[in-house]
Computed example of a mutant assay.
Amino acid sequence: MSDQTADLARIKESARSISKIHKEFTQSANPADGLGVSVLGEKGLVDVFDDFGDNWRVHRQRLADELEKLSKILTTASKAYEDIDHQLAEALRGTDSKKPGTGGGPK
């Protein structure tokens, strides 16, 4: 058996942080949208920003999907760790109450 510990607070905080990043990815538009020649100064640069925007939309959605999955995995993991910890604590309490001299078992 290996000695492993889980920092539940850190796992939960990571899930919340990744969820916030996911929200930003899905709500924020391409920062280059709406920039024309009057702002960028050259049609070639406008085209580059437009190409970037098209690529960014595709990649942003992929990243957002992966962030959502990771957030759900971390949330599920923290819940599972808490459930296991609770079950182990209950099992230990049950064992203690059956020990002689603890008031729960034969003397």
Results as ranks from 00 to 15, higher is better:
G44I: 07
G53R: 05
N55E: 09
R60E: 01
D51P: 03
D3Q: 10
L74C: 05
Q4I: 15
D50S: 13
M1G: 13
S19Q: 14
I18V: 12
G36T: 02
Y81P: 03
A64W: 00
S2E: 09
S97A: 14
L92Y: 11
G104D: 01
A32E: 03
P106T: 02
R57L: 07
T26C: 03
K43E: 14
A89C: 07
L70V: 07
N55S: 13
N55I: 04
D47F: 04
H22E: 11
I73C: 04
K20G: 05
V37T: 08
S19R: 14
L74V: 02
S19P: 04
E68A: 15
M1S: 12
N55G: 07
I21L: 15
G105E: 00
E13G: 06
G44S: 15
E90W: 05
Q61G: 01
Q4S: 12
A91Y: 08
A6T: 12
D85E: 14
W56M: 10
V58C: 01
K72C: 03
D83A: 14
G103T: 00
A32V: 07
T75C: 05
S19C: 05
P106V: 00
D54T: 13
I18Q: 01
A80S: 15
K43I: 12
H22L: 06
T95Q: 09
S17Q: 13
D65T: 12
